[in-house]
Each structure stands twice: as structure tokens, then as C-alpha cells.
Amino acid sequence: MTPPPLLEARGIKRRFGNVRALDGADFSVFPGEICALIGDNGAGKSTLVKILSGADRPDEGQILLGGQSVAFASPAAAQARGIATIYQDLALASELTPFENLFLGREELRPGVLGRLGFVDRPSMRRKAAEQFARLGVRLRSAHVPVSSLSGGQRQSVAIARAAMWADQVIFMDEPTAALGVVQTGRVIDLIRGVRDQGIAVVLISHNMPQVLAVADRVEVLRLGRRVARFDVADANVNRLVAAMTSGTADHGVPA
């Protein structure tokens, strides 16, 4: 018995001029799993993620969260329902420290009158950020230096820790390791597992097939704006994934 999907897309269509970026795409992600979303360049992965995270709106189709139909007016609306996105360009405030970034837009205020005047509670935010980093095994050299002085991998870790702090349902990650070296990629992958183990579902877009097979629980394949295959990772291998991506034939797994 599989549980019902946590977040589901049905028949999503999205055109940009003459380009049918999504042409009736389906997608589902289940609670507490890492789901890889793969597909060739231009298959519509980023567009789908933008629609599911409130950054873009579909022309047609339905989004279901916990079985209920939803329409996100903005990323903030999706965030309020526990859905966060890690964008390819990170979106951290580079001159602020890691803890300030974790709480950006959700600063804690001091108790009492000072709080009502808008005074922020830095010690409390610093403590909670340190707890969050410790929980996810992120070790930063210093929590007091601006994010711009961290390495690419550390910045990605701050972005993921930030998302995991505020999203309790799903985190979308669009190619989170694309710009990283081997060592840093390994650490980010460990971090993604850590997030999943906290009970948050992760949707991972990646072009790196061995990585997908190593980290994902399930794989959904998008081609020309439609889902063409879905696999349990146990049934998948690089050849099958590539075949599904390029020709849309699912010789295995669940045909879409």
C-alpha cells in the first residue's frame, strides 16, 4: 500500500509563446522521500518546479497538496504551506552572516517592548541557527563571517539548511550540485539525505545519473513537457534512465 502523494501535479500545461514548456505534465512526490526529477535540457523540469513552488502559474492543470487542490499565488504562499525551493542561483544575501540568512524575512524579535519596537533577538537566532546547522551536520568555520566568504559548497549548505528550517513538507532543489567539485558535492548529497531523514520530502533535479541512482528513492522522467516514466530506484539503472529521457520509452517501472 503506497501512501497518497504529498504533492501532485496533474495535466500541467505551460506555454511561452510558441514553446510548449509543459504539455500536460504529471508529477508526484511522496512524504519523506527523495524524488529525482530528470529529463533532457529543455524538458520542462525548471518550469514544473517553478509552478509547484509558486514562482510561476500553469495555463492549465491541477496541483494537489495532501489531496486538496491548491493554487499558489506566490513563492511566499507556497512557503506558508511548507514548500521551499533552492534556486540555481541560491538567493542568499551575500553580505549577511549564515544565521542572518537563515532567518532572513523571518527575524525573531526580542521579547517585550523592545520587540514591539522591532528590535531583533540576535542571540536567540544565532543559537537556533547553530542548532539547525548541528542537526544537519553542517560545520561552518564561523557563523560570523558574511556568506560571500564561504565556499560554494558551504553556501549551498546554508541555503539548504535555511530551506529545511522553514519548509516541513517539500524542498525543491534545482541542480544543487551543478557548480560544485567532487568533495563538496558529496557533502551536499549527505546533507540532502539528512533533510530527508528529518521527514521532509526532497525533489532533486539533476543531470548526474550516478548521483540520481545513489541518492534518490524514486525517479520521475520528463520529456518534451510530459512525464514519460517513473521508477523505483531499485528498478532503475543508467541505461533505463537515459532511454526514458531520450526516447520516452519506459521499458520498466510504471509507464506514465
Binding site: 542537526r135 544537519l136 551536520g137 553542517v138 560545520r139 561552518l140 568555520r141 564561504l150 565556499s151 559548497g153 558551504q154 549548505s157 568533495v183 563538496q184 558529496g186 557533502r187 549527505d190 546533507l191 539525505r193 539528512g194 531523514d197
Partner: peptide, 11 residues
């Protein structure tokens, strides 16, 4: 699971 230590010499 706690991820591997994240102390980066290169950072």
C-alpha cells in the same frame, strides 16, 4: 543520520 563533518580546508 548526521551528515559527514563539513569542515572545509578549501573554504
Amino acid at each position: 543520520t548526521v551528515a559527514a563533518p563539513f569542515h572545509e580546508a578549501e573554504g
